[in-house]
Nucleic acid binder design. Structure first.
Length: 272
DNA sequence: CGGGGCTCCTGTGCGC
DNA sequence: TGCGCACAGGAGCCCC
C-alpha cells in the first residue's frame, strides 16, 4: 500500500493531531505486529509517554516519544501492504490501539497484518534505515549522484526503483508512473539509460511524488490518511492498474507483465 | 550481483 | 452458488 506520498500524508496529519498528547494505554490485538521489544516492554515503554514529533524516512513512519522517565524513544511504524494509522475514535478491528489523553485514539489498522511496529532507542540505527538510499525529495538527492549510481547497476530499472537501498520511498505505483512519464521501458537495464533518459526519470520521480502528496496519496484499495480519508491520486494514474485500457498518449493498450514478482504496467509503444 | 520463488497475512474478484 | 486460483501500495530470505 503506502509509498512515500501516503506515509508523508499520514505524517502531516499526525503532526496536527497527536503532538504533545499522552498515550494513556496501548491495546495490542495482533501480537506478531510488534517486533521489538517483547510485548510487555513495548507496552510499558509507550504507556504515559508523549509524542514530541512525527518523522518519516522512506516508507517508515517514526513517532518521537518522551517517556515518563524523561527519555526519548521512538515508535517506528512500517505499514507494508495494508497498514493504516488513523486518529479518531477507537476501532475494535484495529490491530493495535493507542488511547490518548484527549479521549481519542490512534488506531493501527492492517488487514493483512504484515506491518511492523517497534519501540527503539535510536531509529536511525535500525538496519533498514542505515541501508536506505537517498530521499528523493531532499536537496541532497542530486541528478549527478543519481546518474552515477544508475551506471553501476546492471539490473532492470523498475526493480531498482523498488529497491529501498537504491532510493527510499518508491513503490510499485510510483515506479510505474515515473517510468511511463519518462518513456522508459521497465525492463531496460539501469546502466543502459542515456543522459536524457536518466534526467527525465530523475525529474519525473520527484514530479510524481510531489503531485501524489498534493493529492494526499493513492487509494484504490486500503490506503487511508491519518484521519481515515481516501487520497485522490488514483484518479491520475496513467498506467498503474490500467491493463488493456488505451494509453493516454498513443491509444495502444497498456500492458501488464510480472517483473521481480510484481505486477508491472506500461505502454509498449511509448516506453522504449 | 541478478533474478526467481517462497514466505509472512487477509481479502476480493474472476473463471469454470 | 461454490471452489480454486490470481492478485493486492512490501520486503526479507534462500537458492541457482
Amino acid at each position: 500500500m503506502p509509498e512515500l506520498p501516503e506515509v508523508e500524508t499520514i505524517k502531516r496529519d499526525l503532526e496536527k493531531a497527536i503532538i504533545d498528547k499522552e498515550i494513556l494505554d496501548v491495546v495490542v490485538r495482533r501480537k506478531n505486529i510488534v517486533k521489538e521489544p517483547a510485548l510487555a516492554d513495548f507496552v510499558k515503554a509507550l504507556r504515559h509517554s508523549r509524542c514530541r514529533n512525527v518523522l518519516r524516512r522512506g516508507k517508515l513512519l517514526v513517532l518521537e516519544l518522551f517517556t515518563r522517565e524523561k527519555k526519548t524513544r521512538y515508535l517506528t511504524i512500517h505499514l507494508r501492504m495494508s497498514g493504516q494509522v488513523v486518529y479518531g475514535k477507537d476501532d475494535p478491528a484495529s490491530r493495535v490501539s493507542f488511547q490518548l489523553s484527549d479521549a481519542s485514539y490512534l488506531c493501527y489498522n492492517d488487514q493483512r497484518a504484515l506491518g511492523e511496529l517497534r519501540v527503539v532507542d535510536d531509529w536511525r540505527a535500525l538496519k533498514v534505515v542505515r541501508s536506505m538510499g537517498p530521499e528523493p525529495l531532499d536537496k541532497e538527492f542530486t541528478f549527478e549522484e543519481f546518474r552515477k549510481r544508475l551506471g553501476r547497476k546492471t539490473g532492470k530499472i523498475k526493480a531498482l526503483l523498488l529497491d529501498q537501498r537504491f532510493i527510499a520511498g518508491i513503490g510499485n505505483i510510483y515506479a510505474a508512473e515515473a517510468l511511463f512519464l519518462s518513456g522508459i521501458n521497465p525492463e531496460k537495464k539501469a546502466c543502459s539509460l542515456d543522459g536524457n533518459e536518466s534526467k527525465r526519470l530523475f525529474d519525473n520521480i520527484r514530479k510524481v511524488l510531489l503531485k501524489a502528496i498534493k493529492c494526499r496519496g493513492s487509494s484504490f484499495n486500503t490506503y487511508r490518511d491519518g484521519l481515515g480519508q481516501k487520497g485522490s491520486f488514483s484518479r491520475h494514474f496513467l498506467v498503474y492498474g490500467r491493463k488493456g485500457a488505451a494509453c493516454f498518449n498513443c491509444k495502444s493498450p497498456i500492458r501488464r507483465i510480472v517483473l521481480g514478482g510484481r505486477g508491472t504496467y506500461f505502454c509498449g509503444k511509448c516506453q522504449k
